[in-house]
């Protein structure tokens, strides 16, 4: 299998803080890879190194066949990053944001590309409005849409659903799945176990600067005691209740 990302022995310190203590992993082309870890585990540092925003102290990282340190230009041609904060221009409209990115990627027919993405992300109606009046979910959708301009082979999503309401989160999940179905490699970080479980073909757990587990969901499950059959009354979670009520409202 071809590898989209290969990471070997990456180390990184910020002054005295040793954030990454030598991590290795590989991401298969066309798969969804989730890097799971609590806040401050170093997930964003990994993303920054892989997207050429930060240089590692030790180790090598190869993205789409190119070394991130010696061939950053080629890496940037291959990737697209959706950072932890929605990086959208508030003063411009949704359409202008997309056209700007299309032009920066040196694509022709930027207008057509932006219209297609606006439609795909349900933003056609809001396209001419300034982003400053968008809701959190709309901003995140626009942010994702901006990352899809130019059809990069590898997409990095740094905590794509942090701060989103449950509905918007499910929407993002749907988009991520569509991306992977279309052949794009998706590298995502998350602190939500459920998100990794829902989306990822492969999950790596980053803890105290090291990858302490790496495998498919089934493999990870095997590492833990076998499932016991217990009969427990299943209470709906508040999230399930919330979604059920919203769902009913929308049917009416």
């Amino acid at each position: 299998m071809e590898q989209a990302i290969q990471v070997k022995g990456i180390q990184k310190s910020y002054k005295k803080l040793h954030v990454l203590k030598g991590i290795d992993f590989e991401v298969e082309k066309g798969s969804i890879f989730a890097l799971l870890g609590s806040n401050g585990a170093g997930k964003t540092t990994v993303v920054k190194i892989l997207t050429t925003l930060l240089k590692q102290d030790e180790g090598t990282a190869i993205v789409n066949g190119f070394d991130v340190v010696s061939k950053p230009g080629n890496v940037r041609q291959s990737i697209s990053l959706t950072g932890q904060f929605t990086a959208v221009d508030e003063i411009m409209t949704g359409r202008e944001n997309l056209i700007m990115i299309a032009k920066l990627r040196h694509l022709k027919n930027s207008r057509q590309i932006s219209d297609d993405l606006l439609r795909r992300f349900g933003l056609t109606e809001a396209a001419g409005r300034r982003v400053s009046v968008y809701s959190g979910g709309m901003r995140r959708r626009l942010d994702l849409a901006m990352s899809l301009v130019g059809k990069s082979q590898i997409i990095f999503l740094d905590e794509p659903t942090t701060g989103l309401d449950p509905e918007a989160r499910i929407e993002v999940w749907k988009n991520v799945r569509e991306l992977a179905d279309g052949g794009t490699t998706v590298f995502l970080t998350t602190q939500y176990l459920e998100e990794a479980e829902q989306l990822a073909d492969r999950i790596a757990i980053l803890h105290e600067g090291r990858i302490i587990a790496n495998g498919t969901l089934a493999e990870l499950k095997k590492m833990f005691p076998p499932a016991k059959v217990e009969y427990v009354e299943k209470q709906p979670t508040l999230e399930e209740i919330f979604l059920a009520i919203i769902g009913k409202k929308e049917e009416k």
Binding site: T52, L53, R76, L81, G83, Q84, F85, A87, L104
Partner: peptide
């Protein structure tokens, strides 16, 4: 800087 727009630009082939 705050909103990550720099990072977005810097991760692009510009």
């Amino acid at each position: 800087m705050q909103r990550g727009i720099f990072e977005r630009f810097h991760s692009m082939p510009i």
